[in-house]
Simulated assay, not measured.
Amino acid sequence: MARNSFFQFKQFIIRQDRCAMKVCTDACIFGAWLSLGEAQNVLDIGSGTGLLTLMLAQRFPKAKVTGIELDAPAFEQSVQNVENSPYNKQIELLQGDIRQYEPGKLYESIISNPPFYQASLRSPSAQKNAAHHAETLHFEDLLYAVARLLKPEGELHLLLPWDESHVFIKMAETKGFILKQSLTINNHIEKKPFRRIMCFQRATESDNGLKESDLVIYSSHGQGYTSEFEALLGPFYLKL
């Protein structure tokens, strides 16, 4: 997906020239695929441009979505994106560190597309490093925040690279969370998975096992998107 200064969706525009984390295909899949059920209060940790808060507000009109973002330029731009959308009354945006966040309530659903690279080459840009690498929010910090802010029966929805997802699953299990649902994302059917969307809940005696599925973005014949991808992103992409 091109890194333009803005991205036009069917119902809203994401301006992103001040954000290190740009609109990307896997984040759009995340926002279009995850389910909130009957959740009334949803928290987006590391809300960036506001993309996921807007996608969820469009899909779940009864949900109140709160986004918290540490980076000041990204937060300021997300405020602009939300204020200029049809969903500004449904979304609350906050600037701050999730590790110090004290909302005085618990959430039925928490979502996050977090800084995910635990060990890899850094960019010369400090803002990009903070957005993509676990420098300001390690997996343990994220799990601690979720354990503190999620209702006992609540769900955590997460988007991670394929390799890092296995690291997070093991770490989550040590904190009492188990993987309930998983979507594996491939660019092409012949290629290795590159992203994974996961839904976690606290472990209980009535666990019903793991539901797994997969999504291929591009047709193996090189003729554009797969029909599954088009059906999923149809409500958002102008070209679908």
Score class of each variant (00 low, 15 high):
2 A>N: 14
3 R>H: 08
3 R>Y: 08
4 N>C: 08
23 V>R: 00
26 D>R: 03
28 C>S: 14
31 G>H: 09
34 L>Q: 08
35 S>N: 12
36 L>S: 05
36 L>Y: 02
39 A>F: 06
41 N>K: 14
43 L>R: 07
44 D>Q: 03
44 D>P: 02
45 I>E: 02
49 T>A: 02
50 G>E: 03
52 L>Y: 03
55 M>H: 11
55 M>S: 11
55 M>I: 09
61 P>K: 09
63 A>T: 03
65 V>M: 09
67 G>L: 01
68 I>R: 04
69 E>A: 00
78 S>E: 01
79 V>E: 04
83 E>G: 00
85 S>Y: 00
85 S>Q: 03
88 N>Q: 11
92 E>A: 11
93 L>H: 00
98 I>H: 01
101 Y>H: 10
105 K>I: 03
110 I>P: 01
111 I>G: 01
115 P>D: 13
119 A>D: 13
119 A>N: 11
120 S>T: 10
121 L>A: 15
125 S>K: 06
132 H>A: 07
132 H>Q: 11
147 A>N: 15
150 L>C: 11
150 L>H: 09
152 P>K: 11
155 E>W: 06
156 L>K: 04
160 L>K: 05
166 H>A: 14
167 V>A: 13
168 F>V: 10
168 F>Q: 08
172 A>N: 04
172 A>T: 05
175 K>V: 05
175 K>S: 12
180 K>V: 06
184 T>Q: 11
184 T>H: 02
186 N>V: 06
188 H>C: 04
190 E>A: 15
190 E>G: 05
191 K>M: 07
195 R>H: 10
196 R>C: 08
201 Q>H: 11
203 A>P: 06
208 N>K: 15
214 D>R: 15
222 G>F: 04
224 G>N: 07
225 Y>V: 06
225 Y>D: 05
228 E>D: 15
234 G>W: 09
238 L>P: 03
238 L>R: 12
